[in-house]
């Protein structure tokens, strides 16, 4: 069993769900050996039915209290560019492919995805390049992501306010 987990967080990102259930993307996933596709569709209006992905077992849900389990049991995670989702996935060490919603105006979240790709922590693409990216990607080259260190902030502040 090899699972792809897709999350759009609290947003609606119908274009991503449509792309994922397109023949081209399903073929790419099957070729890569994936057997299961789990979609978290958030506020989206497009809810694919169980038979829309021939060759893959499909599970769809809107929201869950926590998607940590889904991330844990996935072999690759495909996510929208939300900082919360990206950092949560990177924190678990799972390979991450971010799909940018290019219909969003003033999309500053692109900044984060770009930087994290430049640093080798994830891959990003758009809906239109998703199939191609899935065919060509090499997840083994991704580098682990170190979590931020709030203790450095605490140390700085202790000095600044006069505790030390």
């Amino acid at each position: 069993m090899k699972t792809v987990f897709v999350t759009v967080g609290t947003t609606c990102f119908d274009d991503l769900i449509v792309s994922l259930t397109s023949d081209e993307v399903i073929q790419a996933l099957i070729q890569r050996g994936y057997t299961d596709l789990v979609l978290q569709v958030g506020r989206g209006s497009n809810i694919p039915d169980a038979h829309s992905c021939p060759g893959l077992r499909l599970e769809v849900f809107r929201f869950k209290e926590s998607i940590a389990e889904n991330i844990q049991s996935a072999d690759v995670v495909i996510s929208h560019a939300g900082a919360g989702s990206c950092l949560e996935v990177l924190g678990t060490g799972k390979p991450l492919l971010v799909v940018i919603n290019d219909k969003l105006m003033d999309n500053h979240q692109l900044e984060l995805a770009k930087q994290l790709q430049a640093d080798g922590h994830l891959l990003y693409c758009t809906c239109s390049t998703l199939a191609e990216t899935l065919r060509n990607m090499d997840l083994s080259t991704l580098l682990p992501f170190q979590r931020g260190q709030p203790e450095n902030f605490a140390q700085f502040m202790d000095k600044a306010v006069g505790f030390v």
């Binding site: 900082a83 950092l87 500053h108 900044e111 770009k114 930087q115 931020g148 502040m157």
Partner: peptide, 16 residues
């Protein structure tokens, strides 16, 4: 009153 501002991690190239 000390004002301490930490820009969000999603800001890489521009400030909010």
């Amino acid at each position: 009153v000390l004002l301490v501002y930490v820009e969000s991690i999603c800001r890489v190239e521009s400030l909010s």
